[in-house]
Amino acid sequence: MIRTVGLHKAFGPKTVLAGVDLAVGQGESLCVIGQSGTGKSILLKCILGLVAPDGGQVFWQDRPLDAATRPDFFRRFGMLFQGGALFDSLTVWQNVGFRLRQRMPDARARALAIEKLARVGLGPETADLMPAELSGGMAKRVGLARAIADDPEVIFFDEPTTGLDPIRARRINDLIRGIVTETGATAITITHDMDSVRAIGDRVALLQDGHIAWDGPVAGMDRAAPLAGFLGRS
């Protein structure tokens, strides 16, 4: 469904992506792991065109994902950014209902937004807070609610559980798994958390030195030598 071919990105002399080939099928949940600073977030941004790649191509449903096809893609897309990326000038519910407000009255968008907040474990009392009043973990969950608010077909999660306590992290993993299986959405999740990978991934890919160093089913990752470091048996 989404496929990258030879994605390349360098910042000055520093090559971050050196030819990344990655594919994720319809309804599949792919986890991308890799050390901090290897370019996982940049990979997502290159796929989305938020950062212009120096080389390579991205395909969506076998068509190039470019300026012409991106508006259509974004309408079916949701993303949780690594830092939440909530709009400071809008309240929590206005953030969550950002897309909904473009096509329905505020009262309905607000009701739906509160529903989505409940799914990520936040009560209706958070709806009227400003992002600056939230803790880091809360902001992350609001970002998650915003990503799933309009029932997207494709979802990217950039480190959904980083900065959450283990109990919340497990709940978020369950939530993501639930969304992906219920709606049949296609998901790419970046994570450092192997429990997350086990909980939500069908497949896992390791990004290392600008390449995909290993790519296979989650069930097989315990026997994969390149993943040893991540699994804590170095």
């Binding site: 941004k45 989305l48 938020l50 508006p71 974004f74 309408r75 897309f77 949701g78 993303m79 950014f81 690594q82 830092g83 990326a85 909530l86 709009f87 400071d88 950002f98 897309r99 473009q102 915003r146």
Partner: peptide
């Protein structure tokens, strides 16, 4: 500028705005 460095501008784009 703050919106740019905290990925809010990117978020706008992904929200079709």
């Amino acid at each position: 500028g703050t919106m740019k460095v905290t990925e809010q501008i990117d978020a706008l784009v992904t929200l079709s705005t």
